[in-house]
Computed example of a mutant assay.
Amino acid sequence: MNYRHEFHAGNFADVLKHAALTRALLYLRRKDKPFRVIDTHAGAGLYDLAGPEAARSNEAKDGILRLLDDPVPGAAGDLLAPYLDAVRAAGAPKFYPGSPLIAQALMRPQDRAAFCELLPQAAHGLRRALGRDARVKTIEIDGYTGLKAYVPPVERRGLVLIDPPFERRDEYERAFDSLLAGLRKWPGGTYMVWQPVKEPEVADAFCRAIAAEAPDCLRVDLQVEAPQPGRPLARTGLLIVHPPYVLEEELKVLLPALTLRLARGPGAAFFMERYGAA
């Protein structure tokens, strides 16, 4: 599977991932102490939703554009507001920001970020999108290698986002090994792993294997229609190791609202499971 950012920018998977990322970073901001963000597969940073890649799939129309055109009301809308503010600040609806720009928008002067991107062209685009900002650093390196190199951060607080394109057959194995290596070096960090759920049994096995090694995990999946062969991706998931204690309750509010708003057809649903510590 090839799931490069530019082809799917602003789709329902991005909405789930970035809404959860925003809530987790807002929790880290509650304390004055600095935090570090590490993004293992950072991408180019900013995506033109009218560009040839995004326009080919036009997935943003069933993702972020639904939220911008018709805001979610009530408590869920309040929880989504900081995420949507960051998206608008980056130039939506023409442009959609990747995880690095969303993190940058939420960082304070004392916070720092390391964005790993192996492809030189994407890394160049990311540096341009981030601008001159001493708080952030873009490194042209394999993200799994970067994770091992950059943990534990000196701040001792923070979040790792593992968001690979799933273009390699061994992607799950690499993500598993890298995450466990990171946990051994930085057991107190929050780790957020994204996955496109094409084969539920594979995703289930991956989550169970991680939970066996790191019992404090929260899994959330969003399905926008019943999966069908030959159809676009219909289900996406996040596995969050050491989630902020408020995140589960916030996602209990967000997931039903996102499922209703982003549904593409029959079979739309959400799934949540907690492993280990509450």
Rank of each mutant, 00 (worst) to 15 (best):
A122C: 12
S99D: 11
D163Y: 00
A122T: 11
R156C: 00
E167W: 13
A76K: 08
A134D: 13
E140A: 10
I102S: 08
K94V: 15
R135Y: 02
L84Q: 09
Y144G: 04
A114P: 03
R108G: 01
V87E: 05
G77S: 13
A90M: 09
R88H: 11
R108I: 05
I162G: 03
L84R: 00
Y150L: 02
L101T: 13
L118P: 09
P82Q: 10
L147W: 02
Y83P: 07
L118Q: 14
L126V: 13
D133E: 06
G91I: 08
G125A: 10
G146L: 12
G158F: 04
A89H: 01
D85W: 14
A76D: 13
L80K: 12
D111N: 02
E140L: 00
D111E: 04
A90D: 04
G77H: 10
P93S: 12
P152I: 06
V154H: 03
V87K: 01
R128C: 12
A103G: 03
R156S: 13
V136R: 04
A103N: 05
R156V: 04
G91Y: 02
Y83L: 13
T138G: 03
L130M: 15
Y83R: 04
Y83M: 08
R127D: 06
P165S: 08
A114Y: 01
A76S: 06
T145V: 14
G125R: 08
R108V: 02
Q104Y: 10
P82D: 10
L119I: 14
G131A: 11
R132S: 01
A86I: 07
E117S: 12
G91T: 00
F95H: 15
I139R: 11
R132V: 12
R168Q: 00
A123I: 05
Y144C: 01
P109T: 10
A149C: 09
A103Y: 05
Q121E: 15
Q110K: 11
A89I: 05
L126K: 11
Y144F: 14
Q104D: 12
Y150C: 01
G77C: 12
G74E: 12
A113E: 04
A122S: 15
A114M: 08
R112Y: 02
D85F: 09
R132M: 02
Y150N: 01
A149P: 08
E155G: 03
G125S: 10
D163P: 06
V87R: 00
A103E: 01
T145W: 04
V151A: 02
L106C: 15
D142Q: 12
D78C: 00
G158Q: 01
P93G: 06
